[in-house]
Design a protein around this nucleic acid. Sequence first.
DNA 1: ATGATTTAGGAAAACGTTTTCTTAAATGAT
DNA 2: ATCATTTAAGAAAACGTTTTCCTAAATCAT
Lengths: 329, 329
Amino acid sequence: MVSIKDVAKHAGVAISTVSKVLNNYPNVSSDTRDKVNRAIEELGFVPNAVAAALSSKQAGRVAILIDLNTRTQAIDEISMQLISGAINQAVLMNLDIITVFFSMIRDKSVEELIRYFKSQNISGIIISGMNRESKQLLELIASKEFKIVVIDAPVYNESTSSVWIDNEKAQYDVAKKTTENIDCKKILYIAGRTDDYISGERRRGVERLAREFKLKLTVKQGEFNEKKAREITLQYGKYNDLIVCASDLMAIGAMKALIEMDIFRPICGFDGLALMGYVGKQMNTVKQDFYRISSEAVRELNYLMNGGCGRNIKLDYRLVRMKYEDIIC
Amino acid sequence: MVSIKDVAKHAGVAISTVSKVLNNYPNVSSDTRDKVNRAIEELGFVPNAVAAALSSKQAGRVAILIDLNTRTQAIDEISMQLISGAINQAVLMNLDIITVFFSMIRDKSVEELIRYFKSQNISGIIISGMNRESKQLLELIASKEFKIVVIDAPVYNESTSSVWIDNEKAQYDVAKKTTENIDCKKILYIAGRTDDYISGERRRGVERLAREFKLKLTVKQGEFNEKKAREITLQYGKYNDLIVCASDLMAIGAMKALIEMDIFRPICGFDGLALMGYVGKQMNTVKQDFYRISSEAVRELNYLMNGGCGRNIKLDYRLVRMKYEDIIC
DNA sequence: ATGATTTAGGAAAACGTTTTCTTAAATGAT
DNA sequence: ATCATTTAAGAAAACGTTTTCCTAAATCAT
């Protein structure tokens, strides 16, 4: 392996000079710079990022945590969007990013998590999908040992930021919009996982709607689970005028149930998955731009790691009607 | 940051002794071992993997290459399966794995690719989805600078292995099975991307079937693109008795076309995506176990990196009829 | 022309490990 | 009891960088 030492010798300069050229330091004459660059070229030298990371005490790496265990189509789509957004932004900002998958760290204690991050020189973390599995992550966030950006949960201290959309308002909006064209007295709400932060928010949104318009609201726990949503709909669907689901996946479950029972009820979902383009029915939903969300998260993490103070970044969403033609590319 | 030096001082031993304890070297008395372990405990010491990687000249890291640019549902699902399988296997084998996304390296020359891998201390690579974007990767494979496992393309030299399923036979099998219950004289085959290795294989499979059973075969290039498959089906679907597609996604496109034209033709797909459970129609397809494929790839890479010689690992597939109940979990 | 300031470039320490030698102590064989 | 062998543990070099400090030369102001 050809090292900086070889380059220095070949160019007839000191190691430190090569390093300065490599890192675009000012105090190098263009003569020397050329000489060094020529040597680099001739020797095919590639700087070793591992050594550089060890040597420089600078910030360290950024990690994005992705849940690998929840195996559903919907999660695949969201995860990949999050990953894409984060990586592209990181490349743009020249950050060393690493994708860490939950299965690698699941069931580990906070200490072990911290261990892992420390051992990997990770000092900035992006966390999405805070839920019951993430209790440890919450502890991690509280510890202030790292700079952290949380997606969709406005919990923060000075070393933590969050990137989120207003789930309460979004749920309200999409449900309201769907009621507008129909005669709606009774709403069935299929809620998300009880201990998910966003579940509470969304539920409050539909509750506010019911209150404001004096609608009868039935709330059932769907756990973000398609099958469960189907069962709930089979049981309660026909007694309601509208079925509001806290996720697209559950909306699909509800739709299947309606088809089975051969009745029609309007449904609305939440997330704006491309998957919705494949289910054959149109549906109102809240389209979240996960790609954008995680790009923003990376940008915010960079801000934190450069000494910025924690804050909440609110992003917008769009109400859309999903159908085949909207999605296919 | 507490380092091995602090541990040594605290335990009253030399640095090298701590290192020996850390790496379970034999020549350490249990007394010393205990002393060191106590110090590690008390100081909350976490070994720095970066430093260790720099110091030890050992094998280096494993990378799995995932394409991030082809933005479709199907790819999301396959990618996530590949990632899951690889990561879980790597954790099991205690390998340091890193997921590298194509967008980070796309449009870069082979030299730059090699640069990247070198700089990241990567010496083993898993490559999937060899196609026109991957020409550079082919060069990389030829270079023998790294140990490489290619998924679904049996190209190898002594430092390269491949993990694959018999695409020719699988395409033959699924198409044959679908013909069995119908009166089939004419087949429309919607092929994959011309320069994809697997496309050629699959095409040969259906050609063999046509030859053996004296069927009229019309082959059109679908490019693994749903929209294109839809268009092809709109144009040629009604003149054929069976539509065989080189991927599930194209099968979905074909299905949409049939629905639009309000005619029925049996269709078969390829891949066994969970997505197929959402499209509302049953379809025969070839189920590939991508999770298993990439676990095997990691195992094989480990074998190569330990001095093993390149070889082909053939995995099996299953013919399945995909429908809602099969998929939902 | 002189002294003060800037600048280019080098020497060497540091980052946190692993690994190779060495040495002193402990054990074994006679 | 002596010498040979094994064993535990430490010293120090190495890995490939970055960074700090220093020196000599060059530039500037007077």
